[in-house]
Design a binder for these strands. Structure first.
Lengths: 204, 204
DNA sequence: AAGTAGGTGTACAGATCTGTTTCATCGTCA
DNA sequence: TGACGATGAAACAGATCTGTACACCTACTT
C-alpha cells in the first residue's frame, strides 16, 4: 500500500467509526485495528487525534458531494425534479442499515467550542449544501430563491435527525418531500419581482 | 440539603454539562465538582454514569415540557397562533448564549446502539413533541393534521440543528416560521374529508 | 441525648486513552 | 546494491476515567 493510500484509508476508517460510535467514544486503537495500520503510521500522518477528526470532516465533505449531490443530479435534468429528488436520495440514505445521521451534526454535539476549526468545517459544509439547493431554486420562477432554499434545507436537516433518532424506520424523507412540494408550489404563486423571470426554468 | 435535593441537583448539573460538553467528554469528577457533591453520594443515587445519563434525559423531558410548551401556550389561546408561536419560542431559545442544541439529538449522536434505553427515551420525547404539535393541528380545519404536524416537527428539528451549527447566529427560527405559515396555509386549502369537520376549531 | 441514614474527603484499583519510543523490516529509488 | 523514508509490533509513559473502600462527620428522628 502506498503512502497516500494509507492516509486515505485511515481517514475512511475513522469516518465510518466516528459515524457509528461518535468521536470521543472511538479510541485511536479501535481505528488502528479496523484499518489494519500501526500507531506509528497514524502519528506520522496526523499530529493528533483532533487532526484526524478534522481530516475526516473535511474529506466527508467531498464524499457527500460525490455521492448525495451526484445522485440527485443523476435522477433528473430539471431543477424542479432535482429539488424533489433530494428527498428521495435522502430516503435511500436513511434506510441503509448503517445510517447514523450526519457526521457534522454529530460533531457539533460533541465539540461545541465557539470558534473551533471543527465548527468552521461544519458551517462550511452547511453553506455548501444550502448553496446546492439555492442554485436549483434560482432556476425556478420564484421571487425569493434563497428563502425557499433555506426552508428546504431546514426540512432536509430535520428529516436527517428525525430519521437518525428512529433509526430510519419512519418516513421522514417522504414527509419532508411532501412539505417541500407544498413550499415550492407556494413560492411559485408569489409575484415575481421582475418581468424577465425564469431563466431556463422547466416547470412541470 | 435534603436527600432528594442532592439527587435532583446532580441531575440538573449533569444536564447542563452534557448539553455544553457532550456525554463522553463530561467526566464524573467534572459533574461532582460543579455540583459540589461527593462521589460517594453520586454512586449512592445512581449505579453508574449511564444511569445518571438516563436520569438526565428523562428529567429534561419534563423541563422541556414546563418551559418550551408552557411558553408556547402562554403566547396565545388560539391553535393557529400557538403553532406559529412554537417558532418564536424556539428563536428565543436559540439566541440564548448557552444554547447547545437538543439534548436528545446530541445523545443519539453519541449512543447509537440499536435498542438502548437512551434511544427509547429520545424517541419518546420526539413522539411527545410531535403529539403536542399534532394536538394543535387537530384544532385547525385541515384534512390531515398528523401529516401537517409531522411536517412542522421536521421544520422545528431542522431549525434546532441549524441554529446549533451556527451558534444561533442565523435566523433559522424565522425561516422555519415562514415555511410553517406556508405549510399551514396550504393544508387549509385542501378539501376536508368530511362535512362535520373542525371539532371545536378556532380559525382566525 | 443517642442512634442512624446520609454525606464528605481522600485514597485507591483497574481500565482505557493518547501519544512516544525503540527496534526491526520493507519498498523504492538512485 | 545501498540508503533512506515509511511501516509494523510492542512496550511504555502519563493522564484520565469509572467505580470502590475506608474513616470520619452531620443532621434529623425518636
Amino acid at each position: 500500500m502506498a503512502r497516500l493510500d494509507r492516509r486515505e484509508h485511515l481517514i475512511d476508517t475513522a469516518i465510518s467509526l466516528f459515524l457509528c460510535n461518535g468521536y470521543h467514544a472511538t479510541g485511536i486503537d479501535t481505528i488502528l485495528d479496523k484499518a489494519g495500520v500501526s500507531k506509528k503510521t497514524l502519528y506520522h500522518h496526523f499530529r493528533s487525534k483532533d487532526e484526524l477528526i478534522l481530516a475526516a470532516l473535511k474529506k466527508y465533505d467531498g464524499i457527500f458531494r460525490n455521492n448525495f449531490m451526484r445522485q440527485v443530479e443523476a435522477r433528473s435534468e430539471q431543477p424542479y425534479e432535482r429539488l424533489l429528488a433530494i428527498f428521495d436520495v435522502a430516503g435511500d440514505w436513511f434506510s441503509q442499515n448503517n445510517f447514523y445521521g450526519c457526521l457534522y451534526i454529530n460533531a457539533i454535539g460533541e465539540f461545541s467550542g465557539p470558534d473551533t476549526a471543527i465548527r468552521q468545517v461544519c458551517m462550511e459544509f452547511k453553506a455548501l449544501l444550502c448553496r446546492f439547493i439555492e442554485d436549483l431554486c434560482r432556476e425556478l420562477p420564484v421571487a425569493e430563491p434563497l428563502t425557499l432554499a433555506q426552508e428546504l434545507a431546514l426540512l432536509l436537516e430535520g428529516a436527517i435527525v428525525t430519521a437518525q433518532v428512529s433509526q430510519g424506520k419512519n418516513h421522514s424523507a417522504k414527509i419532508a418531500k411532501t412539505a417541500a412540494t407544498a413550499l415550492i408550489a407556494q413560492a411559485r404563486t408569489l409575484p415575481l419581482p421582475d418581468a424577465d423571470q425564469a431563466v431556463g426554468s422547466s416547470q412541470p
